[in-house]
């Protein structure tokens, strides 16, 4: 039973990185660079950082746009948002919105 759970959980996680997703302007790979703070697949249990898993696309895009422009104050997100194009942000948004 336990083995079954492990393998099905892993398979579930893994589908998020399957090639079909990766080909979409690399959203999965780019999103993975956020995981050091926002958790693997954007999932966090109980942490100070905002979980990105399941975040509606529009919310992610607006946040990154406002960080980039400086409209939304931050510690370091403003710096990081500078490094991503609109297309990058769109691809990451699509990826995170799909994570259940």
């Amino acid at each position: 039973m336990k083995t079954l759970l492990v393998s099905s959980a892993l398979a579930m996680l893994a589908t998020l990185f399957t090639p079909a997703h990766a080909s979409e302007h690399n959203g999965a790979a780019m999103a993975a660079t956020c995981a050091g703070c926002h958790g693997t697949h954007g999932k966090l249990r109980n942490q100070e950082f905002v979980p990105l898993a399941g975040m509606p696309e529009a919310e992610f895009i607006r946040a990154m746009r406002d960080y980039k422009s400086g409209k939304r104050q931050s510690t370091l997100m403003g710096n990081l948002a500078q490094g991503f194009s609109d297309r990058d942000v769109q691809a990451m948004a699509r990826y995170f919105a799909r994570v259940k």
Binding site: V50, P51, M55, E59, R62, A63, D66, R72
Partner: peptide
């Protein structure tokens, strides 16, 4: 919490 108090973060 948003400029007008409407949360812009789900957290």
């Amino acid at each position: 919490h948003g400029e007008t108090g409407v949360a812009i973060s789900r957290n």
